[in-house]
Amino acid sequence: MNTYYKAAIRNQKELMPGIWKMELEAPEIAHSARPGQFIQMYPPDERNLLARPISLAAIHGESVEVVYRVVGKGTEQFPRLRDNDTVQLMGPLGDGFTLPEAGERSVIIGGGLGIPPLLELSKRIPGEAEVFLGYADAPFMDGDFRGHGRKVHVASQTGNGGFRGTVLELVETIAPLADRVYACGPRQMLQAVAEWAERQGIPVQVSMEERMACGIGACLGCAVKIQKPGEKDWQYLRVCRDGPVFSGREVVWNG
C-alpha cells in the first residue's frame, strides 16, 4: 500500500566517503515493504521538485534503512538531516524480487550502490545463497551480508578486499551452482550478468534504475525496453511500476 508522509530520521552515518546510510521511522512502509522495492525521498529544498528514488536496504518492524550516494543537488541535502529531522517520503513502490522456491540455490550479485538493495533479499532467502559483491575500491556492507550467515565474495577494481577485477569475473572464477540469480548494479554489469546467466540457463532477476518523475507509473518517465516472451516486439515499460525488478532475459540490452 503506497503512502505519502513525513518520516523521522535516525542513525544517519557515512559508510564511505559520499555514501550514507539512514534509518527512517516509517511503520506504514515497513509493514508492507518487500525486498527490492524502493521509496521516493523528497529533497527538503523545494526548488528540487522531483523525489529521489532510493531502494530499501533493510526492512525492520517499524522502520526501514536506505543507503544512498551523494551525486548532486538533491542528494547532497540528505546528509545535513539530523536525528529527529523529518523527510517527505512516498512508498513502498515498485515490484520487488520474487523469492526462490524451497530447496533452490541462489546467487546474489551486486555492484557498487546496487549492493544495498540486495541486503534484505539475502536475509529473506530461506535456502542457500552465495553473495558476490563488486566495488570500485574499498568494500562496504559486505559485513552485513556475512552477518546473517551468507558466504560473501568480494571483488574490486583495485584488488582492495580480495579479488582484483569485475564481480562477474569473480563469479566466473568461482563458478557457483545456482538455480536463481539476483543482480543489482550498473547497467553494464547487469547486462553482463544477464548474458552469463542466460549461457548457464539460469533465470535471473535484475533490478534496474532510471530517471523518474512521479515514481508511481503515471508519467511514463522511467522507460526500459522490455520484450516479453511470445511478443513480437519490445515495448517501453515503467521501471517504477512494472519494475524495478525485471527478468534479465526480457530486458532489451542493446539499443
Partner: peptide
C-alpha cells in the same frame, strides 16, 4: 505509440524537462 528513448526526465531548478514522446 512507443515513445522516446530514456532518459526521458531531467530536473532543473524549480522545474523539469520531459521527453516522453506521447507513449
Amino acid at each position: 505509440w512507443k515513445g522516446n528513448p530514456a532518459p526521458r526526465i531531467a530536473e532543473t531548478q524549480s522545474g523539469m524537462l520531459n521527453s516522453i514522446g506521447l507513449q
